[in-house]
Structures are given as structure tokens and as C-alpha cells.
């Protein structure tokens, strides 16, 4: 009898295998920290443009619908080409790419350590479930930009990103759910504080990511 594995251990094994086979567990906390740092650097540059120069943003508020600069009669704020050339957009794009690349790197390193495939069925499922709210959100926000509703962009980013994380939590470390809730909450608060978009951005994409990353690293990877 004593040679047989204890039933409680067997149940633990079963639970572990179910988790391992259904969730992508190699997501590194350091990915969160790196992405957060990128976001803070990006926000610092963006802040400089918004408040530092004498361009149309220098009123201290992001333009929003109803702003005299936006042509309400046609309902169109800016064309896409105008927007692509916008330095704020370029900073956002560059920040996003840098954050993604660094996040990918740390998770890649972790997946080698935990011996799980980076591109297995678990990570594919995770990617899909992150992508759906993100792509839909992206299209929605792009339309808002075309309509010139700039004030709602920052809260929109936070809300859709938060929804993506909540959705993703079923397929990776479940703590990411709380990060998602926090992002959604920030986005919603931001809706009633239009004009402080950059602050909420830095808080959500920067500070929250770093806190989450440190907590996760401490919990799963330390030592």
C-alpha cells in the first residue's frame, strides 16, 4: 500500500496536467515589466509633444468632438494619411512594437526554461482570444480617429485592452484577469476625465504592467 501514490498526489497530478495542457503558462512577468517601461518612455515623449510644443495640441487638452478645430459639418477630423504622419501616432506605434518585441523575448526565454512550446495549441488559443477584442477595438478606434473623436481614443484603448486580457485569462495564468479589470476600470474613469488621456495611458499601460509583472515574477519565477 505504501508504495502506491497517495490519492491526494494523484489528484494534484491530474489538476496540474489539466492546467498545463489548457493554459499557456510561460508568459513571463518580466514581459509585463518590459512592456510597462516601454509605455512609460513612450508616454514621456508623447507628453512632451502634447504639452511642450505650440502645435494644436498645446491647449492642454486632447482634441475631442465638439472642438472647434474639428470640422463637425463633414464629421471628419483627419484623413488617415494625415494621422499616420502624426508624431503622436508614430510614438504610439513605435512604443507598441518595442513593448511587443520585449514581451515576446522574455516569454520566449521562459518557455525554453519551462520546456513548453512557444507556438503550441495553448499559445495559439491564447493569441486568438487576445486578438479578437484587440482587432475589433482597433477598427473601432480607427473609425473614431477618422471622425475626429480624439478624446475617446485613450479610454478606448484601455477598455478594449482590458477586455482582451479578461478574455485571455482563461487560456493563460489566471491572475491576468485582475490586470484586465484594472485596465477596464481605468478606461471607464478616463471617460469622464477626457483630456487626461496621456496620464491614464501611462498609468494603465505603464504602471499597471510593471506592478503586474513584478507580482507575477515574484510568484512564479523568482529563484
Amino acid at each position: 500500500m505504501s508504495a502506491k501514490p497517495q490519492p491526494i498526489d494523484t489528484l494534484q497530478d491530474i489538476k496540474q496536467m489539466m492546467e498545463r495542457s489548457s493554459r499557456f503558462i510561460s508568459l513571463s512577468g518580466l514581459s509585463g515589466v518590459a512592456a510597462g517601461c516601454c509605455a512609460l518612455v513612450g508616454a514621456w515623449f508623447a507628453y512632451d509633444i502634447i504639452y511642450g510644443s505650440h502645435r494644436s495640441y498645446s491647449t492642454g487638452h486632447t482634441r475631442y468632438y465638439g472642438d472647434p478645430e474639428v470640422d463637425v459639418t463633414t464629421g471628419r477630423g483627419v484623413s488617415l494619411s494625415e494621422f499616420m504622419g502624426n508624431s503622436l501616432f508614430q510614438i504610439a506605434l513605435f512604443t507598441f512594437i518595442a513593448a511587443l518585441a520585449l514581451a515576446f523575448l522574455f516569454t520566449y526565454l521562459r518557455s525554453r526554461k519551462t520546456n513548453t512550446p512557444l507556438w503550441g495549441s495553448q499559445s495559439k488559443r491564447l493569441m486568438w482570444n487576445v486578438a479578437i477584442p484587440m482587432v475589433v477595438g482597433g477598427i473601432y478606434l480607427w473609425k473614431m480617429i477618422q471622425e475626429g473623436i480624439f478624446g475617446l481614443i485613450a479610454p478606448g484603448c484601455l477598455i478594449f485592452y482590458g477586455l482582451a486580457l479578461v478574455n485571455a485569462s482563461k487560456y493563460t495564468l489566471k491572475e491576468i484577469r485582475y490586470l484586465g479589470f484594472c485596465q477596464i476600470a481605468l478606461g471607464l474613469i478616463n471617460l469622464w476625465n477626457i483630456g487626461y488621456g496621456i496620464h491614464f495611458w501611462a498609468l494603465g499601460f505603464g504602471v499597471l504592467h510593471i506592478i503586474y509583472g513584478i507580482v507575477m515574477w515574484w510568484k512564479y519565477e523568482k529563484g
Partner: peptide
């Protein structure tokens, strides 16, 4: 057997 149990556990959630 641990492996057979593992296979079934994984197939319960996939």
C-alpha cells in the same frame, strides 16, 4: 499509470 492518467486528464480539458 501516471502517463495514462495524464493523457486522459489532458483530453478532459482539450
Amino acid at each position: 499509470n501516471r502517463i495514462r492518467l495524464g493523457i486522459m486528464s489532458a483530453l478532459m480539458v482539450n
